[in-house]
Design a protein around this nucleic acid. Structure first.
Lengths: 234, 234
DNA sequence: GTCTATATGTTGATAGAC
DNA sequence: GTCTATCAACATATAGAC
């Protein structure tokens, strides 16, 4: 049996092949195809309403491939959510950083835009599917699975934006009032993302970021200011 | 053991106790216990995530009782939704009627209050469970089942409130702008109903109508006015 | 890494006695 | 109206060949 040869190619650190992931091109495309199919089906029929079989079949993969890569159905949902939510969170933090690195204090509208713009990001076409999916999942089953992920992903962001809003609103506005206003901001945003089933007789709004974001900013900024003003008037 | 009124005398308008059906006292309590259990479980784990067995077991009834009374799982969901949504719709229409029967033109705040107040109705304690359930289901699976019901129940109401808002806002405000604003109103409302899984590190807001409704009215009225003003400035 | 085959449990729905 | 018993279908997960 030939002894092992300390070739330069085998020097430690020369080729640390898989630090975290992309094990092989084929495996990568397997994972990705599963994520794509899962995103589509989970969005359309919900987590519980979608069988793992349906996902793997739509992806042209086997059931056990999903188990190998994601550890099961729940892991697949988690990975699917994470893939879309992470960029939104990073975009929000980046825009808020830029705003705070600037000299002057940010206005309410600027803080809100930093929060809202990445939500509709990714281009007009892709934004539709992604946003619809993510928003739908946030409001759907199973809370014990999605809840911790939401907290993990959004916990810091929400705290920082609450701080920024507190700084931008008139001094003395109660924190609790700002928190309630922020929840309304989130609610209005989710609604415009088009997550819900069609509710009115009116035609659906196109999810064009250029159209929606300014109106969301306008609406919610006025709402937050009204909350702050009413509280100070007491 | 108090029996239900054996008096067949029907005074029109006096107090119609059971409008359409009451096959027998025991059947009624069977139906009701199934509805209660279904409401609780569907709200907690979703429609697809809840087995019919779990519902009937929690209700102390048999699986076939559910089939007999509601025709199956989907019929049970429909009946459960309808039981809670109908009073909200009726309350909204009643308040709007009263507003329009008055001489003077309603203000934006008054229209919004007519829309929002019944949403949180039914008392501080019961409101929590009902609202949470209804809002959760509106945003959850299966759209092809819930969608038509939503349209059937809310179609007319939404159209009438859009008209009322159009009349209350500055003349010339585009209908489309009002529709978008109205969707944000709905979104903010649903969010405050507490339907979603906990999303922030902050403690949950108590769903006390007396606290939430005025703030919702304040926030959304200012938002709608800001939308209208920005559009007229163009 | 990916597959087939299978273990093990649950689902929604129904038939028929009472 | 309500029950028990049972159905066929499908669920997730795993074992082991390649």
């Amino acid at each position: 049996m030939p002894r092992s040869q300390p070739r330069p190619e085998e020097l430690p650190g020369a080729l640390p092949p898989v630090p975290s992931e992309h094990p092989s091109p084929s495996a990568r495309s397997t994972k990705e195809s599963l994520l794509d199919a899962a995103e589509r089906l989970f969005a359309a029929r919900g987590f519980e309403g979608t069988s793992l079989r349906a996902v793997t079949q739509a992806a042209g993969q086997s059931v056990s491939a999903a188990h190998y890569h994601f550890g099961g159905k729940r892991g697949l949902l988690r990975a699917t959510l994470e893939r879309r939510l992470r960029p939104v969170v990073e975009g929000r933090l980046r825009m808020l950083d830029a705003l705070e690195a600037r000299g002057t204090a940010p206005r309410v509208e600027e803080v809100l835009e930093a929060f809202l713009r990445p939500t509709f990001g990714g281009g007009a076409e892709a934004a539709g599917a992604r946003a619809r999916f993510v928003a739908a999942r946030l409001f759907s089953d199973p809370p014990e699975l999605v809840g911790p992920l939401i907290r993990e992903l959004f916990g810091e962001v929400h705290r920082r934006f609450l701080d920024a809003l507190e700084a931008a609103l008139p001094p003395g506005t109660a924190r609790r009032e700002i928190e309630l206003g922020f929840r309304m901001v989130v609610g209005a945003t989710v609604q415009l993302l088009g997550a819900q089933p069609p509710r009115e007789g009116t035609e659906p709004w196109p999810a064009v970021p250029e159209e929606l974001v300014p109106r969301l900013v306008r609406f919610t900024a006025a709402g937050l200011r009204a909350l702050a003003a009413a509280e100070q008037a007491r």
